[in-house]
């Protein structure tokens, strides 16, 4: 039935898809790790980024990879403003209210997209979309390799940011001990907004890298957001290396599970891993203390 020769290419497919999951999850793990909130709006922000990249390409002729330069700061700004002006203020700092507010924000964003762009599925055909690179026995589309490399680079950048900069130290301080951080003079609201902004900027980068191999529609966020949560939990909240490895593991599991036991099982495997990790090692592979 199953030809062992296709196992290796399937694993490589899984790795490259896993890198995409990691890209989406990197921003989420930062927001989740620092603010301890489950951000329901994450998928909608990815959608915003995808539309941004799409229109820059279609109207401005700007290649998605080039549009990174514009999208990353733009989404950072959007994220900062959202957290500082809407989520932080409306939620009064309580977790259940953050949940409702991010949910409300995602409903608004998705339907704004529906209103302005209609429910139409949009795709671009980038000139390199069908460039293939041979790796061992697999032929991998170029955009996926780019995404793979970018996931590594962005994870490394985030790690540097957190480990080596004052901002990173402040974020970590706030993540660990909000009250204490406030006492030593850290502007907690600003740090929250910065974290949300950086997390959203990551989603902007993910969007630019994803567009050449995917599509965009007002509901596209749902396609990735649950997987991204799985990746975050698997890797441990707030851990970038964890998110990266988590993404790759999920990608390969989905791919090989789907190949060997059927596509449905591939989907099932993601959630079974998710449940197993939550039960047996809720802090993930690289997470810190349990909450």
């Amino acid at each position: 039935m199953l030809d062992p020769v296709i196992l290796l290419p399937a694993a490589i497919n899984g790795l490259t898809m896993g890198a995409v999951y990691a890209l989406v999850a990197l921003g989420l793990t930062l927001i989740y790790g620092v603010l301890h909130i489950i951000n329901f709006a994450h998928g909608s922000l990815l959608m915003v980024g995808l539309y941004g990249a799409f229109f820059l390409y279609q109207a401005g002729g700007i290649d998605p990879y080039l549009s990174l330069v514009l999208l990353v700061p733009a989404l950072f700004g959007l994220g900062y403003i959202l957290q500082w002006g809407v989520i932080g203020r409306a939620s009064h700092g309580s977790d259940q209210n953050v949940l409702l507010v991010t949910l409300g924000v995602s409903i608004v964003i998705e339907n704004l997209a529906l209103y302005f762009f209609t429910g139409d599925t949009r795709t671009i055909e980038a000139p390199y979309a069908f460039e293939m690179v041979d790796i061992a026995v697999a032929r991998v589309p170029l955009p996926r390799l780019v995404a793979f490399g970018a996931a590594l680079a962005i994870a490394a950048l985030l790690w540097l940011l957190m480990a080596k900069t004052d901002l990173g130290r402040a974020i970590r301080a706030v993540a660990k001990e909000r009250q204490g951080a406030r006492l030593v003079g850290i502007d907690v609201d600003h740090i929250f907004a910065m974290s949300f902004g950086i997390g959203t900027a990551c989603v902007g980068a993910a969007a630019a890298l994803l567009l050449p191999m995917f599509y965009v529609s007002p509901h596209v966020g749902h396609v990735f957001v649950l997987v991204a949560f799985t990746v975050v939990v698997l890797g441990g909240m707030g851990s970038f290396i964890g998110a990266l490895l988590g993404g790759l593991i999920i990608g390969v599991t989905e791919s090989l599970g789907g190949l060997i036991f059927g596509e449905t099982f591939g989907q099932l495997a993601i959630f079974l891993i998710f449940i197993a990790i939550l039960l047996f090692r809720p802090t993930g592979f690289f997470g810190g203390r349990p909450s």
């Binding site: 296709i6 399937a10 497919n13 995409v20 997987v227 791919s255």
Partner: peptide
């Protein structure tokens, strides 16, 4: 499934 994110494996098959 709907949505399916990746068809690479189906194509392999």
């Amino acid at each position: 499934a709907n949505p399916t994110r990746d068809f690479a494996n189906i194509v392999l098959r």
